[in-house]
């Protein structure tokens, strides 16, 4: 393991978007080991686009993305994953035709410990032989996370963990991100709609508005300065 100047993920001057039209402009972002970073912002701000570009599923328009010190090649996007990046996609990216166990098996890589990944989600254990498509939404999200952890990632991107889940499940799943980062030293980059819950469990947060970073600050500071958040979500004239 080489030294990357501390950062697992280093995004600098990134323009990201579709068919050459940038959605995100001039983004600088870092995630360090054991750190939980929240990427917040209203709908259409470019959060998902950012994550897709980081994991190479979308080619960057300009700027650079370095994961574990190496640039990402979108033509060989699967190699980034092999280097230690796990991405839980917005719609979970599960294979519904395979059983939960088969999904985990595909995520399992190297010397990773499958049992340890499952330790975080004891509710999954009795469901392992069920088809992923037959699990409930919360169970599917757990499976997606467990599958990501089964590859012992060093950097974990989670897109909209709370999408379509009951609040009570979100309340148990989100703090798990903190625990995982603490236990394994994995860096976590979290896209989240539940702003306050995300701020509670994260170290730092970026707020994206119209593709540009409006606020970047420590999470506890943002909790104290709600006005900063409200301005960035609702615009200057909202207050």
């Amino acid at each position: 393991m080489t030294d990357h100047g501390g950062a697992l993920l280093k995004v600098s001057g990134l323009d990201a978007g579709y068919l050459g039209v940038p959605v995100v402009r001039g983004l600088d972002l870092t995630v360090g080991p054991g750190e939980v970073v929240a990427l917040l912002g209203p709908n259409g701000a470019g959060k998902t686009t950012t994550l897709l570009t980081i994991s190479g599923l979308l080619p960057a328009i300009a700027g650079s993305v370095k994961v574990l010190g190496e640039p990402v090649n979108p033509r060989r996007a699967h190699r980034v994953a092999r280097r230690g990046l796990a991405h839980v996609l917005e719609r979970r990216g599960l294979f519904y035709g395979l059983t939960a166990r088969e999904n985990l098996r595909l995520g399992h890589r190297g010397g990773a410990d499958l049992a340890r990944a499952l330790d975080y989600f004891p509710a999954l254990v009795p469901l392992l032989d069920r088809q992923a498509g037959l699990l409930s939404g919360g169970e599917q999200q757990m499976l997606a996370l467990a599958r990501a952890l089964a590859g012992a990632p060093r950097l974990l991107l989670v897109d909209e963990l709370s999408l379509g889940l009951a609040p009570i499940i979100v309340e148990t799943l989100l703090p798990l991100m903190r625990t995982i980062a603490h236990d394994t030293g994995t860096g976590v980059l979290l896209v989240e709609q539940h702003v306050h819950q995300a701020l509670e469990i994260s170290d730092r947060a970026y707020v994206l508005v119209h593709g540009e970073v409006a606020v970047a600050a420590a999470s506890d500071e943002l909790v104290r300065r709600r006005d900063m958040l409200e301005v960035s979500y609702l615009g200057e004239n909202a207050l």
Binding site: S55, G56, L57, A77, H78, R79, A81, R82, A86, H87, V88, L89, G93, L94, F95, Y96, G97, L98, N103, L106, G107, R109, R147, G151
Partner: peptide, 13 residues
């Protein structure tokens, strides 16, 4: 897996 969701497959390496 790849037949069902290519993106999902790529994120698993």
């Amino acid at each position: 897996a790849a037949a069902e969701d290519e993106r999902g497959a790529i994120t698993l390496g």
